[in-house]
Write a protein that binds this DNA or RNA. Structure first.
Lengths: 337, 337
DNA sequence: CTGTTAGCGCGTTCAC
DNA sequence: GTGAACGCGCTAACAG
């Protein structure tokens, strides 16, 4: 009877659901997608039939017919940074249960690679893209616009219209650290940074601006290469040789600060006795290291969660009032400062 | 002319490529998929036409027609553990450029959730699955078998036939640590562990077995919950109260060891003077912490790389001689032991 | 609010 | 070694 079964998936199809429910395929399709213009009675019949058959929609067929997949691409600068992994996981947690596939676009802090990643992922016709920051190439932006793909930017905020963003003010965070140092009576301050992406630069600017407003100059030691614990120690050592009087250092991330703490310990330099340290991101270990590290707790998990929900709203065609979601940050003061 | 363009993607299709190359669609299809039974001359014509048009295959159409997607699912116990992220990244690096989509299946150390994740991902008809470990539920294994999905297991090895695995011997690694302690004259040894998955248990067994062979008993402090830096400090403190004479501790992962190092420092306990520490995985920070942590360097990146290549071979239908790839491990001896 | 028609772009089948 | 025809499972369009 089922002589065609050789090629078929074997799984129940929409046609069978529709047949069982006594409606047409398209009505079944609409009912299962919660299209509002369906008689509630029919809709529930369809849902019952679907359940009875154990129907699972075929995403490939859906994508082919609608020219839009159920995949959301998440563009992150790196996976080596725990930061983005936590955001990614939050996104996953929101999107997967709703039937979306989440695809990682790791662009290794390279905007050219980001553009290439976008171009490649366009083949699967993603239904949405979550981006880190705002500094994609022009070509990237044009690609996304031309393909009418909803975008949500993460980690930073913008005042631009028509742009959806979820994050916090990097500048304000930098400024908060500056004020913290000043309040503690520190005056010989430095910003030590690596992996100089837009956010790292911006938080440094906030730091320096706040200091300048207080009439304090800031030292700066910034290297473009990747950040690491070992590098933190090296940069601290170098800075200390150049400026032995430095009494407060803001490291652009916790990893650098950890390395500096270890280096200080090896050199017998008291933290915060001689020099105070502040990190950024508040990684798990920062609350336990000796001395416990003062840091900015960034809402990376919430960023992912809110960005994902915002994307859901856009995908549903909902009216979004707040295009900008400011999740803030928290200065966690501990022993190191 | 193109009045139907409304629904079409606008992108060039296989039919256009075939037309330009002067062959039938199916020949173009075969040529682009490197099916061997195609005249090399025609094949190159097709490739030229494809390039000329900027043709990009439509994955959804391919999936629908072949009932198999270009997606590989990677099942990991957690993303909070940097370990698996590095493996995942390596897999990504191999598979993405070859046109595969990599989907994360985070099962949060729950085998039931793993089964559910598999069941959910089956809807997209993945062409392959990479698993962490061997202890999936029976139902999981049956699902994968019934759907004829190629599987590669990571992180552990097995002697079972018909099973592909890439990793190293957890037991041998544990045993190596035991021998290291013994060689250093330590005799009052303990295994401290959390997040008791199969691999954590196995490396503990290797540790204890090697000690037993040397006539040494092992203390053990194992808790089922998630691992963390803070927990490492707590467990160390607890163990020390119960057994003040302990002189060597093997922590099932570096995070626990880090926490213990900080706790020891706070209590003024000398490491390795009074008690030696060894961790597992050799995270980046372990080479810098004070004292630098002795640890087992696990080949997690290579595991991902080799697992991905093994999967590629299986997908290509190639003959695979070595179903088991042992990547080994390295005991990195540092100051803490 | 519902149904009919007509594909979406590709790979499988089976002839040649 | 190559091709014609068909169908994968679903949704967009438009009419009713």
């Amino acid at each position: 009877m089922r002589k065609e079964a050789s090629r078929a998936t074997g799984r129940p199809t929409l046609a069978e659901v529709a047949h069982l429910a006594g409606v047409s395929q398209i009505t079944a399709s609409r009912a299962l997608r919660d299209v509002p213009t369906v008689d509630p009675v029919l809709a529930s019949k369809v849902r019952e039939a679907s359940k009875a058959l154990g129907y699972v929609p075929n995403p490939a067929a859906r994508t082919l017919a609608s020219a839009r997949s159920q995949s959301v691409v998440v563009l992150v600068p790196a996976l080596s940074n725990q930061l983005f992994v936590e955001t990614l996981e939050a996104i996953h947690t929101v999107l997967r249960p709703r039937g979306y596939d989440v695809l990682i676009g790791n662009f290794h802090y390279s905007r050219e690679e980001e553009e290439e990643v976008i171009r490649n992922y366009l083949a699967i016709q993603p239904c949405g893209i979550l981006l880190t920051g705002f500094d994609g190439t022009d070509a990237s932006l044009r690609l996304l616009e031309a393909n009418k793909i909803p975008c949500v930017h993460m980690m930073e905020l913008t005042k631009a219209e028509d742009v959806y963003s979820v994050g916090f003010s990097q500048e304000d965070a930098g400024a908060a650290i500056a004020r913290h140092f000043l309040a503690r009576g520190r005056r010989r301050l430095a910003y030590v940074a690596a992996q100089l992406d837009a956010r790292v630069i911006r938080r440094g600017e906030g730091f320096k601006r706040a200091l300048a407003e207080a009439g304090v100059d800031a030292l700066e030691l910034a290297v473009p290469g990747p950040s690491s614990v070992g590098l933190g120690g090296e940069l601290f050592d170098k800075l200390l040789r150049q400026h032995p009087d430095v009494d407060g250092i803001f490291f652009c991330n916790d990893d650098l600060a950890h390395g500096a703490i270890f280096e200080a310990q090896r050199q017998g330099i008291s933290v915060p006795g001689r020099v105070a340290f502040v990190g950024f991101n508040d990684l798990q270990i920062s609350a336990h290291i000796v001395p416990r590290l003062t840091s900015i707790r960034t809402p990376r998990e919430d960023v992912g969660k809110h960005a994902a929900h915002l994307m859901l709203a856009l995908l549903a065609g909902a009216e979004v009032r707040d295009r900008t979601i400011d999740l803030g940050f928290e200065l966690v003061v501990r022993e190191s400062s």
